[in-house]
Structure formats: structure tokens, C-alpha cells
Design a protein around this nucleic acid. Structure first.
Lengths: 346, 346
DNA sequence: CTGAAAGCGCTAACAC
DNA sequence: GTGTTAGCGCTTTCAG
């Protein structure tokens, strides 16, 4: 109604700044974008007006007109999982260092993932980083493939760039470590929360080294809630595996959480680690370092992985990386702690 | 140059859909916003066009014109910390359930926090949730106070809504538990990563119950990297505290991570838990449940905290909550596990 | 119930 | 160097 009643406390726009400084919109725009075509005194005047009004550029408007955003979508399996939490942190850190904000999408349920991805795409994120991904999910592919670059960290796919550790070599090293200690009956325990491709690679490393040594690989798989152990879809108890004459003397777990579960079982069954049972994990989560856990494990260099992932993403965005998906791996190294020893060391 | 060369694979806009369906822009808009003023056949025609072109609304454009976004900023101290990881997960989940996306800002360094907040404000986030906050940071206040609603979860301030556990009562209960087991020399160990206000409240609970029982409170504080213990700014070793005639028989730690650190020390010093030393933590991180840790602790109901935080935020946004900052607390409860026992139980 | 028109705050040519 | 102008993709009055 009253034409000159000011809208209360609307945040100032570039136009307000321009009026205040007595210049035009574009001069202000030039100043805030650090364009080099503005005279020093003019620039100072504009900057004064900016801080006077405490003007803050509207990223939405800018990105709308520029037709590109500086946001990444990050799909993370479960932030409560310490490995994912740490990875997420590193990814956010490196993205921020490159001027990108991150939108997180927690997922586990398939439906949530699809909805989350859809929403990320509506925000026109510049790219999507997958810190977890079920390969079986064809949905993700049809949703994002070709629209924005996707890079998969610590998980795998054939339709996007992949950054991960050399899982197979890592598993080989772990298995060799157990062999060199004198173990012969070494089991592989698969935790289903490990991505399929990573699990396969680790399993392959394990199987190969076992075969080389003339030993039979034995693979078990956890099923969650409540935790139960399966071999070839036949349920077996941890007791079956860890007790008796034909018992396993060592377990190589596909991740640290699984390894810690094995420690728990051992404790319950009164089996001593490492005297009666050696355990090796994978990831080197912070927890693994605790004196009470003290787990021998294959360390994943989370910071390197995150940096490489962000670098790959920005390379795609700048066009310095083009064409077919690439796969970049980093070396893994075994950290020997107190959960492994020669069999019968007690 | 060639006026009819189509821009290659630009994502379709509302206008493309309108043309394809032979209607006007606003009709399409009415359809995608589920406005009830569109005839069924028309709506169907538009929907066909939408899926034909696989049109996806541009959230940036929408939010620019609506002058409000559906994004929350989330300031998180350290995602690698399992308590924060879990909280972050719950917050993301509940925000998503209310139709809000979350932008995470990792912080620890003061500078990073300011830069992160600035960037969140440029994105015009609808509100900011603090999952960690150093009260000393006056910067945050001048940056966000009055601009967008802020809610502080598990940390405190006087310039925004606060959602947290009843730290004092929780600490009282923990201390009483130790007293009732027969302990008299009970120390409080403060971990500096716990927010100041929370630490104060927990300490108060501890001191009060000690005083009631006619006992002297004894407070120690960790300093990080390398972990060293201080009392009144005088360095003392864990050995001083946990060994000898005047040794403490119980430790109440301001968080689980600190409590686990105490377990580590005990292990190194050959002190048995709980026979020679009882330990109580705070938070109930997943780790605390491990058989090897098995920590008695005050549980924070992370999901309740997250839900309450999001509810508070949305209430502010809808205007159903107005005026001065509110403080909402949830009850905490003690989980008794294996790290506590009567003194000299061995 | 549908369509035309006016912006949201900003950038990016392109004249002056 | 600086100002003018035309949109970015969408919502939202307001006439038909």
C-alpha cells in the first residue's frame, strides 16, 4: 500500500549497494567478483557500501544465472559407522578447500537413496560423491549417469570414476602375514556392510594367497540383526568355527567392525586373542588403536582417498579429465598390532 | 550463430514442458506444485510431458523466487568422533523427513567455522544447527544471530535455542551410582572436546553429589596431543592418580572417549577394571557396548535430541515458536555395564 | 480453470 | 572503466 514503506530487514541486494555507493549494479558485481576492470577508488567506495550495509551475495541467484553450482552431493552409507564418519569428514574438508559446499544424504534404505539423489539433482549439484553404494541399485545409475559427474570412493561401479584402495593387494598382505606367523587354518569373514566390489577384491586376494600356499580358503558371512554366521548359506555358530579340533586359528575380516565382532565372540567363548586366535581387520578405524582392541589391520589412508576423490571430481568439472570412467587406487598397508601371533602361542 | 541449433542437452525447463504439453508455464507450475486448481485431464497431459522430457524442477530457481530455502546448515565439530557422527546422521535423517537438505560444515578451527558460516548464509540456508560450538567464539554470534534461526544441540549458548540432555542430573546419577557401590575417592576427568557448558553442568552434578556425601570433589582435565593430565594447571600422571595409597578408586569421565582413554591407561598400568578401578563415561557411543569396552555410561538419546532439534527449528520457521531463545532438555539415563563394581571387588 | 506478465538477485555481453 | 540490458528458471498475482 504505502509505496515507500521499506520491507523490514530484507537482506540487502546488489542494487542497494549500488545505490548506496552511487554506481550501477554491474560495477558492484565487478567488485564482488574481483574483476580487474574496476578503478581503485571506485572499488573502495563500493567496498565501503558493502560493509556498511553488511551485504552478502546471494549464492542461489549467482548459481542460477551462472548455470553451475559449487555444491557436491555426498551419499554416505551410515555416518554412525566410524569409517564412514571419518571419510565424510575428509571429503567435506577437501571439498571446502576447493570452494565447494557438501550436501549429505544418509542412506542405507534403497528408497531413501533414490529420493536423496533426486533432491540433489534438483539442487543442480555440480557432482556427486558416493561414499557407499550398493551396486545392485540400478536406480542410481539411471538417475545420475550422464547428468553430473559421479565418483565412487571406497566402493565401485562401472559407470563412474572410482577411487579406492588396492583391496586385493591389501588382503594379500594380510593373509601373508597370517601365513608367515605359521597359521594354516585361516578363515575369511565377510561383513555385508562392505561394498560388494571391495569385498570381492579382498576375498580374491585372500583366496589367491591361500591357493599359492596350497591351503583351502574358507569364507563365512555375517548376517545382521541378530548377528549370525553363514557359510554357503548354511548357518553356523561362531563356536563351530572357533572351537574344536578343526577350528580356525586365524580370522581375516573384511572390515574392522567385523573383526571387533570376532573379538567379542572370542571373549564370550573364552578364546584368547592372540594366543588361541589371531584376528586381522580392514580399514584401521580409530577404535582399532585402542589398547583394549589393539587390532592388526589393513589401513586405508582416508585423507589420501578423499583428496584423490575431490581432485578427480574437479578434474571432471574443469574438463581436464574426460571420457570413460577412470579407476584410481592407492596403496594400502598392514598395521601389525596385538591381535595376531603364531598359533598356539599361549 | 545458427539460431536454430539447439543447445545440447541443456536440462529441460518448465517452458519446455509447457510447449510440449501445449499449455502455459503457469499451468505446468501449478501441476508440479500440486496446486488443486488444475483439471484432471490437463494435469495428466502435463505429467506426460514431464516424464517424456524427464523434467526436473530447479530448486535454486524456485527458492530464489520464493525467498526461502529448504536447506539447513549443520555445524559439526568432528565427524570422526563417533558421538558427533551419530548425531549428524540423526539430524540429517529427521531434516530429510521434513523436506530439508543439510549442508555440513566441519569445524574445529575457528577460522574454518567463520568461513563456513559465511558460506551457509550466502546460500541463504533456512536455519543453522550447531552440533558443536565453542562459546568463546563471539564471531559466530555476530555472523548469524538475528539472520536465521540457530539451534544448539548438545552444546549451549545464550543467543539461540538449545536442545540438550539434562547433563547435571545425568552426572548426579552417575556419581550416585559410584557412591552406592561404596566408592569414596571418585575423580572427575574432563575431556576438553566436550563443550564448556556441558562440562560445567556435568561437573556441577558431580560436585553436588560429592558434597552431599561429605566428600571432596577432585577434578582433572586432559590436554590433547599427547594426552596429558592436569589438575589446577599442574601436570599429573595417570599413575599418580590411579596408583598408591591415596589413589582414586573410581573415575567419572565427561565423555566416553575420555573414559576409554582411562581404560587404556589402566591397562598400561596393570590396573584391573572394575576390580581396582571403576570407570563411568558419558554419551553411550556404540563402542561403549563392545564386550572389550563394556563401559558403564550415561546415555544420551541421540535420536530424541535430533528430533527435538529439528522440531524446534521448524517451529521457529513456521512462527509457531517466537521470541526469546528456549532451552529444551531430555532425560538421560545411566547404563550400568561391566566397568563399575564395588571398590576392592577383586 | 488457464494464460500473460512481473519479478527473485545476480551475471555477462555489449554499448557508452 | 562504467552503465544498460537481457535473461537464468521459477512462482505468483491478476485478468480472461
Amino acid at each position: 500500500m504505502k509505496p515507500n514503506s521499506p520491507k523490514i530487514s530484507r537482506s540487502p541486494t546488489i542494487l542497494d549497494v549500488a545505490r548506496r555507493a552511487g554506481v550501477s549494479k554491474s560495477t558492484v558485481s565487478n567488485v564482488i567478483r574481483d574483476a580487474d576492470c574496476v578503478a581503485a577508488p571506485m572499488r573502495a567506495r563500493v567496498k565501503d557500501a558493502i560493509s556498511l550495509l553488511s551485504y552478502r551475495p546471494n549464492a542461489l541467484a549467482r548459481q542460477l544465472v551462472q548455470q553451475r553450482t559449487t555444491m557436491f552431493g555426498v551419499v554416505v552409507g551410515d555416518l554412525a559407522n566410524p569409517f564412514h564418519g571419518e571419510m565424510a569428514k575428509q571429503v567435506e574438508l577437501h571439498a571446502a578447500a576447493q570452494g565447494y559446499r557438501t550436501m549429505f544424504v544418509n542412506t542405507q534404505a534403497d528408497e531413501a537413496e533414490a529420493a536423496g539423489l533426486e533432491s540433489l539433482l534438483q539442487y543442480r549439484v555440480a557432482g556427486i560423491l558416493f561414499l557407499a553404494h550398493a551396486e545392485t541399485t540400478k536406480r542410481a545409475r539411471q538417475l545420475v549417469a550422464g547428468k553430473v559427474p559421479a565418483v565412487f570412493v571406497t566402493c565401485s561401479t562401472d559407470w563412474g570414476d572410482v577411487v579406492c584402495g588396492d583391496d586385493r593387494r591389501g588382503a594379500e598382505e594380510a593373509t601373508r602375514h597370517l601365513l608367515s606367523l605359521g597359521h594354516r587354518r585361516i578363515a575369511y569373514f565377510a561383513d555385508p556392510i562392505v561394498e560388494d566390489a571391495a569385498d570381492r577384491a579382498r576375498q580374491t586376494g585372500y583366496r589367491e594367497v591361500m591357493a599359492e600356499a596350497g591351503l583351502t580358503p574358507t569364507v563365512f558371512r555375517w548376517r545382521r540383526s541378530p548377528s549370525r554366521l553363514f557359510r554357503n548359506d548354511r548357518e553356523v555358530t561362531p563356536e563351530d568355527v572357533l572351537r574344536g579340533k578343526r577350528r580356525m586359528t586365524a580370522v581375516f575380516s573384511s572390515n574392522d567392525l567385523g573383526a571387533i565382532e570376532v573379538l567379542d565372540c572370542a571373549d564370550r567363548l573364552g578364546i584368547r586373542v592372540p594366543e588361541d586366535l589371531s584376528v586381522v581387520g580392514f580399514d584401521d578405524v580409530v577404535m582399532a588403536r585402542l589398547a583394549r582392541i589393539n587390532l592388526t589391520t589393513v589401513a586405508q589412508p582416508q585423507e589420501d582417498l578423499a583428496r584423490l576423490a575431490i581432485d578427480t571430481m574437479t578434474a571432471r568439472l574443469q574438463g581436464s579429465l574426460q571420457g570413460r570412467p577412470v579407476r584410481r587406487t592407492v596403496e594400502l598397508r598392514l598395521i601389525v598390532r596385538g591381535s595376531t601371533a603364531p598359533p598356539g602361542a599361549g
